[in-house]
Amino acid sequence: MMMTHIFTCILFVLMFRSSNAAFTATLPSGNHFYPQNGIIRYNRMLLTDSAYNSNSGVYTVTTNGTYSVSVTMMSGTVAAHLTMRKNSAIYVWLYTGNEYDMATQNVNMNLVIGDQIWMQMNNQASRLFDVYNTFSAVRIP
């Protein structure tokens, strides 16, 4: 009986240690132009998770669970509308006006293996400014 309890505890620890997904990415310094419907490719990794593809800007879920997903944006001198997408559908919107406004959304999402999350520019010819733009996700154990 004691041995079964020990094995159960070890299995529990291994499951949570190996399945905790997390990443944070930002943009490099400078102004970044995006066309309408352009996917934001956050390619400066602050915390790496292989499920986030910095070349495409898409996070593909590899472990079922509840995730805290966050995006912060600064647009510089032009207004911008950004959307957080889940499997192509708009999940939440962000908006900034002129003069280096900032916006943030933080949501908890139930995600399953294969779900995809990304940020997408919705208005024409907009810019994001500098390292103030971040995209993060972490699985809540």
Rank of each mutant, 00 (worst) to 15 (best):
V61N: 04
V13W: 02
V107Q: 02
R85P: 08
I39F: 01
V69P: 03
G65L: 09
I117A: 03
I40Q: 10
G38N: 07
T83Y: 00
M45T: 13
M2W: 15
S18P: 07
R139Q: 12
Q116N: 06
L128W: 03
F129E: 14
M1T: 02
S126Y: 01
M121Q: 04
G97H: 04
L111Y: 00
N53K: 03
M109L: 13
G114E: 01
D115F: 05
R127M: 09
V71P: 05
Y42K: 09
Y59G: 09
Y52M: 08
F12M: 11
F7L: 14
Q105M: 15
T134W: 01
Q36E: 12
L128H: 00
N37F: 02
N110L: 10
Y67E: 04
T104N: 10
V78P: 14
G57S: 13
Q105V: 13
R127E: 12
Y67K: 08
V61Y: 03
T8S: 07
D115G: 08
S68M: 10
A125W: 02
R41H: 04
T26L: 08
M119V: 10
T26Q: 14
T8D: 08
G114Y: 06
V71F: 00
H32R: 06
Q116F: 01
V92M: 12
Y59E: 11
S68K: 05
Q105E: 04
S50G: 10
R127S: 13
G38Y: 01
K86R: 11
D130E: 10
I39C: 01
N53W: 03
V13G: 06
F129T: 13
P141N: 12
N122H: 08
Q120M: 00
D101P: 15
T77A: 10
L128I: 11
G30K: 07
P35H: 12
F129R: 15
Y34W: 12
N122F: 13
Y67R: 11
N20S: 09
V71W: 02
D101E: 11
V131W: 05
M45S: 04
N87P: 03
G38Q: 00
C9R: 15
T4L: 13
V92Y: 02
S50D: 14
R41Q: 13
V92T: 11
A79K: 14
V107T: 10
S29N: 06
A80T: 13
I140F: 00
S50M: 05
F33E: 14
T26K: 10
S54F: 03
N20Q: 15
A22F: 01
N87R: 06
L14C: 09
G114K: 07
